[in-house]
Amino acid sequence: MNKLVKTQDVTYEYVRRDDDGNVENIVNAIEGINISIEEGQMVAIIGHNGSGKSTLAKHLNALLTPTEGTVWVDGIDTSNEEKVWDVRQKAGMVFQNPDNQIVGQVVEEDVGFGCENLGIKTEEIWERVADALKSVDMYEYRNASPNRLSGGQKQRVSIAGIIAMKPKCIILDEPTAMLDPRGRKEVINAIIRLNKEEKVTIILITHNMEEIIGADKIFVMDKGKLVMEGSPREVFGKVEELTEMGLTVPEATLIGKKLYDSGLPISLPVLTKEELVSEIGRARLSKFR
């Protein structure tokens, strides 16, 4: 399959300066990152606060360019300044705070904003906006003011604004962090549907482990370095290591692990509630046999 996003030894130095502009110290926000993401995948990047996951995300659509190393998006080197706008069209980005990324005064105007920037013809903008709003189930709100929407709805409008630009991948930087449980569910369902039905590559940065059980791949970041990578089953199998980094695991995984540790012979790791129930059932049966 095609490698859509690839990074090689990416390091980003964050230079802190004092009031006189002298260099106080240099911190590597991320260091030696090598990842590759295939087209059509849904991958997740998890990590503690300050682990560098947002910094990495900003590299993937050229908002930041690496101090060392290279990032390729669909074959384009992001540090090539002439191609910056191509990169941003190919890799769209959704941010955490839904209020701070909506530009338009009406939902449809906001969704069209990216297309206007790309210089797309008026008629086509209208088509794209309608399709994008339908794909996140917000079409009936197209004439509403963003101020009247709930957090989850605003976030879906933001996603539609990116989809209208027809990107190859969407990077979502903690899109559900400021939402209530219902809004979270709406947004995550919209993301999963885009991945499954429209085959858009999704890069989801999150704190909430329940959201990424269905991901194809998980990257774990700690202190600016990539420390783990693998399928959810591989990553969540290492409960102790994750806990040491200050990360949680899905509830079912944790309960499964605890049960195993206290002597119940279930096969680890358990990812979902349903899996846990059937595993416990199986373990009890084998015990009584």
Binding site: N61, L63, W85, R88, Q89, G92, M93, F95, N100, Q101, V103, F113, G114, N117, L118, G161, I162, M165
Partner: peptide, 9 residues
């Protein structure tokens, strides 16, 4: 940042 990410120039 969000506007730049949406290719505003």
């Amino acid at each position: 940042t969000a506007m730049e990410a949406r290719a505003y120039r």
